Computed example of a mutant assay.
Amino acid sequence: MPRTDFNRSRLIHLLAGLSLVEASGSRQFPAERLGQWLGVADAITLHGAQSAGSAMVPAPPALQPAAGVAAADNYARVRAALVDLITASCSPVGSRGSRIRLPLPKPGVEPEIAAAYGPYRRFHLALQTEMEAGVRALRGSLRRALAPASARLRRLAILDEALDRVLAARERQLLATTLPALLEKRFGQLLAAHRQRLNDDEQADDPGLWMQPGGWLATFRDELQSVLIAELDLRLQPALGLVEAWHDEAGQR
C-alpha cells in the first residue's frame, strides 16, 4: 500500500497553503515516480511477494466481523494516541508532561540565540521517530489480523509487507529531510517578518513575548502541529488501506 501520490495528500495542501510547495506538484504518473524509488533487487523482492501471494489461494474462509471491527478500533486507537502525543508535545503547558518537549525561549537568552532552529529540527525528528515506530507496529498487526480472512487479503498482506521493507528507508529519508527543511524555511519567514515589524516600530525584541497569542513563534507552533498531524495521516495511509480492504472484502461476500 505505497503512498505514491503525495500531491493529493492533506499534507501537500497544507504546505501549499503556507507557500512552501506548489499545490499542483509534479504531473508525473505515480507509477513512474514509484519506479524511480525501486532498484533491481527491490523489483525482485516485490515480484517474489506477488508470486507467493498468488500461489496461496485456498477456499476463502468465512469472514469474521469481529476481526474487521478490531482492526478498525486498533487503527483509531493508534492514531488517537499519536495525535495526543503530537498535541501534548506542541503545547507549551502540556509539553512538561510529555517525553518530547517543544523548545521554548529561555528567560534572559539573547534573541539571536533563542531564534536558532536546531532545537525545533530535533523536536520534529523525535516525533517522526515516534510516528514511524507506532505506524509500523500498527501496520504489522493489521497484516497479521487480516491475512487469514481471505485469499485476497492474504495476498495484500504479503505485498504490503514487501512494500514496507522496500520503501521504508527511502520514505524515512524523504520525510526526515524534506519536511524539516520546509518548516525551517517557514520559521525563517515568520522570524524575518517579526523583526521587520520591530524595526518599523523601533522596538526592542523580547523572546519572552514570542509565544504570546499572536506572537510569531506561537504561529509557527500552531503550523508545526498541523503539519505533524498531516504527516501522521500520510504515514497512516497504508494501514488505513488495509482496514478499508477488509471492509471491501466483507461487502463483496
Results as ranks from 00 to 15, higher is better:
T4D: 14
F6R: 15
S9H: 13
R10C: 06
I12R: 15
H13M: 01
L18D: 00
S19W: 06
L20R: 01
P30Q: 01
P30A: 05
E32K: 05
R33P: 04
Q36V: 05
L38E: 14
G39P: 00
V40W: 13
A41G: 02
I44H: 10
I44E: 14
S51K: 11
A52I: 04
A52V: 07
G53S: 08
M56L: 08
P58W: 05
L63N: 00
A67M: 01
G68L: 00
G68E: 03
A71L: 03
A72M: 00
D73R: 14
D73G: 08
N74Y: 06
A76I: 07
R77F: 09
R77I: 03
V83P: 09
A88K: 13
C90D: 03
S91F: 05
P92I: 02
V93E: 05
G94I: 01
S95K: 02
S95P: 05
G97K: 10
G97D: 11
R99M: 05
R101I: 04
L102M: 13
L102G: 03
P105G: 11
P105C: 11
P105F: 08
G108C: 12
G108T: 07
G108S: 10
G108Y: 04
E110H: 14
P111Q: 15
A114T: 11
A116D: 15
Y117P: 10
G118H: 12
P119C: 10
R121G: 12
F123K: 02
F123L: 06
Q128W: 14
E130F: 09
E132H: 10
G134R: 02
V135C: 07
R139I: 00
R139A: 00
G140W: 07
L142Y: 13
A145P: 00
A151K: 00
R152V: 14
R152H: 04
A157Q: 11
I158Y: 10
D160A: 10
D160G: 08
R165Y: 04
V166S: 13
L167D: 04
E171Y: 07
L175P: 01
A176E: 13
T178W: 07
L179W: 03
P180W: 03
L182I: 08
L183E: 06
L183N: 11
K185Y: 03
K185L: 10
Q189M: 08
Q189C: 01
L190D: 09
A192G: 02
A192T: 10
A192K: 09
A193G: 02
A193N: 06
D201P: 00
E202Y: 06
D206S: 12
G208D: 14
G208N: 07
L209G: 07
P213Q: 04
P213H: 03
G214V: 13
G214Q: 13
G215L: 05
A218P: 01
A218L: 03
T219P: 01
L224K: 11
S226N: 13
I229V: 15
A230C: 09
L234D: 05
R235Y: 11
P238V: 02
P238E: 01
A239F: 05
L240V: 08
G241P: 09
G241V: 09
L242H: 00
H247F: 15
A250G: 01
